[in-house]
Design a protein around this nucleic acid. Structure first.
Length: 262
DNA sequence: AGCACA
């Protein structure tokens, strides 16, 4: 008996049966897509998000409605991508705005070693020249749709400030977007440059590490050749604990600006 | 939450 039943901390942490618990969901449900969207576009939308695994485009068969699912390696990555992209204007021509929520269930599709990074599920009746970008050999593997009515209310969707950084626009300033320099925090006070460098130099594309202790706690900047390589490192090292750490794992983000090639 | 170097 580890917990007294009236222990408020114990009670607080019990699952609440009145709300669906989606803390184990790693998959996002995306609606509000234009009906001519391509699986490739969905893939490009998510591929640089940390923790991204795979995605699929689904023609629901009701009208030209298209929805998509994006699966991440963990729940937190999925939630982060959700917040980054929900409400973003996807197509300035059609005015379509992304509506993203946690899916009702995780995508069960396994990552085949030779398989593509995205998948199309076509439930449409028409068998004419519909382009099958990638075939789904197992149509029963897609998660449930969380909201049947989500797609009908495209016009009511309000565009939040995050839509300013729409994916189709090029920005000179980097507002939290991907960067080939990483910012590393939550390092212990005893962290030294060499132990961190030892870990980082195992990854391809690693360039330069700079450690600095601003008002005590050290933070680091690690520069890589390109964003893909930096993203990979962020994914793999996120939360990992250095031997010198007296606290939790490293917290890694994209730096606000690329390191200067001095 | 903490983002420098030029």
């Amino acid at each position: 008996m580890a917990h007294h039943p009236y222990d408020p901390y114990y009670l607080y942490n019990q699952p609440d049966p009145t709300y669906s618990d989606r803390s184990n969901i790693n998959t996002l449900f995306i609606s509000g897509l234009p009906d001519d969207v391509k699986a490739r576009e969905i893939h490009n939308l998510f591929r640089r998000r940390p923790g991204f695994d795979s995605c699929q485009l689904k023609y629901t068969g009701r009208g030209n409605q298209v929805v998509a699912f994006a699966t991440f390696y963990n729940h937190q990555s999925a939630v982060t991508a959700l917040h980054a992209l929900n409400g973003v204007k996807f197509d300035p021509q059609s005015g379509s705005v992304l509506h993203i929520e946690l899916a009702r269930s995780n995508s069960r599709r396994k990552h085949k070693p030779g398989g593509g990074a995205y998948v199309v599920i076509d439930k449409r009746k028409k068998t004419d020249a519909n382009s099958q970008e990638t075939s789904s050999d197992d149509g029963g593997s897609e998660p449930d749709e969380p909201s049947k009515k989500a797609q009908q209310s495209n016009e009511a969707v309000v565009t939040p400030a995050s839509a300013i950084s729409a994916p189709y626009e090029h920005h000179e300033k980097n507002d939290g977007g991907p960067c080939s320099t990483l910012f590393i925090a939550n390092l212990g006070p005893n962290c030294n440059e060499d132990e961190l460098k030892e870990v980082l130099c195992k990854y391809p594309g690693f360039n330069v590490l700079k450690l600095r202790a601003k008002s005590g706690m050290p933070v680091a900047f690690a520069d890589f050749e390109d964003i893909e390589q930096a993203s990979k490192v962020m994914e793999e090292l996120q939360g990992s604990v250095l031997p010198s750490s007296d606290r939790g794992g490293m917290h890694i983000e994209y730096a606000r600006s690329k390191m200067r090639k001095s």
